[in-house]
Design a protein around this nucleic acid. Structure first.
Lengths: 138, 138
DNA sequence: TGTAGTATCTCTAGTGACTAGAGGTTCAAG
DNA sequence: CTTGAACCTCTAGTCACTAGAGATACTACA
């Protein structure tokens, strides 16, 4: 049996976050000691590992809830889980392409400024003020 | 003179967001009509354009506040603005590299699952439960 | 057994950057 | 002068936590 602090150390999930996951219905409500402290078993350790891994991959709490729902009903096909994962992959790819555009634009802005002159002549500030200097990247 | 709705249409910033920026001290407090409605001039239009452009590039409200601070003191060197922009570029690059890792992992997970079998055999769920299947990517 | 110090408990509020809605007032066109 | 859209303020909700207060419980050592 693990205390919440021990569970935290083993999984790398902070103590208040574990309580938050319980509140959000992701983690099973654990047993308690006579003094009202949570005590966890191996099942909860596994479950929290699953949650952490999914969060690290960027799945939302709602998506994780859906995945857990699927775990609990092994008779359903795994198509739903796959769809959730694919949606997440699409989202990640969209974010990457968006960020690449920003990277290009920021590079252009930063490289136009040597940081020496007065801010009244600053290329960074001028670029931000005038959208027209962007090459249609966004 | 523009009403808040006209300003919104011209800049693409939603009306409540404009009021929010005013509250956050990014946008100058505008004049009002007798009936207490905001009226904006060209200066505010420019300013809001600046803010929107910076937000689109991912600058935080705090960073934008600092940039506006610099605009208002043209005697300072532009090194500060450059530093803020460079920090933003670094952040964007870090996010991209992080997201690339996630993309790779999600691709691996998704491609291992055809979505047909029962969720008890689901590769997506198994991968999320067992961090060991990741190739040390995170 | 006593005690010191750490861990835990619940509860509320704060973060960032908005967004939504209620309930009321003002503006502009016809 | 009326109608309906736009505007006003204020509060609360979003997401996934994080911080802190104030109280209680556990654990290791003397």
């Amino acid at each position: 049996m693990y205390s919440i602090g021990q569970l935290s150390k083993r999984t790398g999930v902070k103590v208040p976050t574990i309580r938050y996951y319980e509140q959000m219905g992701l983690l099973a409500v654990p047993g308690r000691t006579g003094g009202n402290q949570r005590r966890y078993g191996e099942g909860e350790l596994q479950q929290l590992g699953f949650i952490k891994h999914a969060r690290d991959l960027g799945f939302s709490i709602a998506a994780i809830r859906a995945l857990i729902e699927l775990q609990d009903h092994p008779d359903r096909t795994c198509g739903e889980a796959n769809a959730i994962a694919e949606a997440q992959l699409t989202e990640v790819r969209d974010k990457i392409s968006q960020l690449r555009k920003l990277e290009g634009e920021l590079e252009r802005i930063v490289s136009g400024c040597d940081g020496a002159g007065p801010s009244s002549d600053c290329y960074v500030l001028a670029s931000l003020a005038d959208h027209g200097t962007c090459n249609g990247t966004h």
